[in-house]
Design a protein around this nucleic acid. Structure first.
Lengths: 346, 346
DNA sequence: TTGTACGCGTTATCAC
DNA sequence: GTGATAACGCGTACAA
């Protein structure tokens, strides 16, 4: 089949600068200058060229441009986040920072497979991305892509194991601290912590923040230590039942995820405890479908992923522009108070 | 600053085919043939070239290649799906279909804004993507991008309003039908339907499927018609309370989303109804955090988004290769039975 | 079997 | 103020 005429789509040859120049009656060089705002071109000529470009719906070929400039205006987002819960806000933040349309983002999902990650990495490099953002699925440190890459890399969410890399990760310690400080400020004294799988850095970090805040308030953790388990509603229910048996006087529970918190709320209701009247509950992640659907709506710690993505993109930009950096930076979380921690009246 | 030496990253100039040719002691043309498997090259020469390429870690410049070939091996995924619940499985399916690494995907989020969509569209076209997949945030038909685009387009999830476009959308009608057929097969007779916002095509289509299945079974819808409301847990609770007042004998509820179903389960428990003993419940979407976290676990209709994405990508590929198509194709759903509809014993 | 030369579309440099 | 020309890196006719 004639390549100019494939199927129903009138896939005519893309219009080039040469076409525009011809229609405007100038050389390609002049046309280029006119369209790019160079000031060595007569106003009237520029107008003619611009009009021709519009008439032909001219779109400069970014490939040719990139080939010449050595910059493509593209960035690779390499993720292992199967659900997309983390990568999407980061993508949005990155798009914001880059300025819509100026930079385009290649999104690749390695699905937790190192081989596939390497494969995608090669593809991205051969497409000459200007930089890379690597997004992990947890906040546990991950292996570095190495120091030999021809483009700058920023690790987001999951930091790199190599301190020579630049990583941006949520500050889970301060997140845990904020949750407990909030509960203390609401007048709670017997505060328990139900967490997820203790192998996760996020679980350990949030628990560390809890300890800091309790120490500062001169309180002991209720329930005989952190209740580690798994990141599920089921565990939230089970843990709460155990907790109420061990320590019936508990008046607040900080859950290390919103899913766990939902289980906690369920179990509390089942055991006849009023929330927030008898027990206040705080979750983590601010995953809105869970937090807003809860009854009562769930106070939660938001780890500001969109801001994190925006910031990661900014850092990548400055690295692309020549100023590289390294180390792990922690982004603050933010507490969103809702009904589940309304202060006790009187 | 010297562009060859920016920051700590040893961002040496990318190695080109010329470098490889020089090291191997051949011309670029020969090197090109050797690496691309052309058969007009002596085996020994090829070996020398391949080795040189490996030594230098040569990565062919995809930009130059694309410029020459008129094909870039890139595809644009244009979405308006703020949460990423739909776009991520579609992206994964598309990556599968394309074959990891052979095609890279630009992901752009228009955030429901037509201006931003147009902006991203221009950027994608100027990057000379070979094709586009447009993913809507609902299954309601959306405006077409038009017939004048230089590349083929496939609309996924939300079909295009223009029948000249090719659209792939879940078959919500049959999904609704499957849910009710399953309930009937489980021995239920008084089946109600709690749905979301009636302005959504998904709500209307699923309800239509319900009607089909009930008619076929010779049953009437319980609860005095479909209970339309909003796509929230809250509405699931409210609607269930209303429903039990209107029709206490109801023995099954089909909820048009898993979130609604969660509200339904909550309210049923509160009113002392056992699930599935007294009432069976089916959700929609198979959103696993909700469906598997529910107590009992929730039977749900999965609209097979990953398969939809894979299929959309395949269709896009054949369109890129010249065979364009049009019309709206509906992809079947799949019912995943879980505890909430265990058949009544005896 | 290998090498030379051209073109893809654009921008920058240098004549005019 | 404008235009010819050379690059960017690669693939491919064509010539050797």
């Amino acid at each position: 089949m004639d390549p100019k005429d494939r199927g129903a789509a009138p896939a005519k040859r893309n219009v080039t600068l040469t076409d525009v120049a011809r229609l405007a009656g100038v050389s390609v060089a002049t046309a280029s200058k006119a369209l790019n705002g160079r000031d060595q071109v007569k106003a009237e000529t520029r107008a003619r060229v611009v009009e021709a470009a519009e008439r032909l719906a001219f779109q400069p070929n970014a490939l040719a441009r990139g080939l010449l400039a050595g910059r493509t205006g593209t960035v690779g987002l390499l993720t292992s986040d199967l659900e997309g819960r983390f990568v999407i806000p980061i993508l949005m933040g990155a798009e914001d920072a880059f300025g819509a349309g100026r930079v385009s983002v290649f999104l690749c999902d390695a699905r937790g497979d190192a081989i596939r990650e390497q494969y995608h990495l090669q593809a991205l490099l051969s497409r000459r991305v200007d930089g890379l953002i690597v997004v992990g699925q947890q906040t546990d440190p991950r292996p570095s892509l190495g120091q030999k890459l021809p483009v700058p890399v920023v690790y987001a969410y999951a930091p790199s194991l190599d301190e020579r890399d630049l990583s941006i990760t949520p500050d889970n310690v301060s997140g845990g601290r904020m949750a407990v400080e909030h509960l203390v400020a609401c007048g709670r004294r017997r505060i328990a912590h139900v967490s997820g799988n203790p192998m996760y850095a996020a679980a350990q970090d949030r628990a560390a923040g809890v300890t800091v805040a309790l120490d500062a308030a001169g309180l002991e953790l209720a329930g005989d230590g952190v209740l580690f388990g798994e990141w599920s509603e089921r565990w939230g229910r089970t843990a709460t039942t155990m907790l109420l048996a061990r320590d019936p006087e508990v008046d607040a529970i900080f859950a290390a995820s919103d899913q766990i918190a939902r289980g906690v709320l369920d179990a509390l209701r089942e055991h006849g405890r009023d929330v927030p009247g008898d027990v206040a509950v705080v979750g983590f992640d601010n995953w809105e479908p869970f937090a807003l659907g809860a009854r009562p709506t769930l106070t939660s710690v938001d780890n500001n992923l969109e801001a994190l993505g925006r910031y990661a993109a900014q850092r990548l930009f400055t690295a692309i522009d020549g100023t590289s950096a390294s180390g792990t930076e922690r982004m603050p979380c933010r507490l969103l108070p809702r009904e589940s921690t309304a202060p006790t009246l009187g």
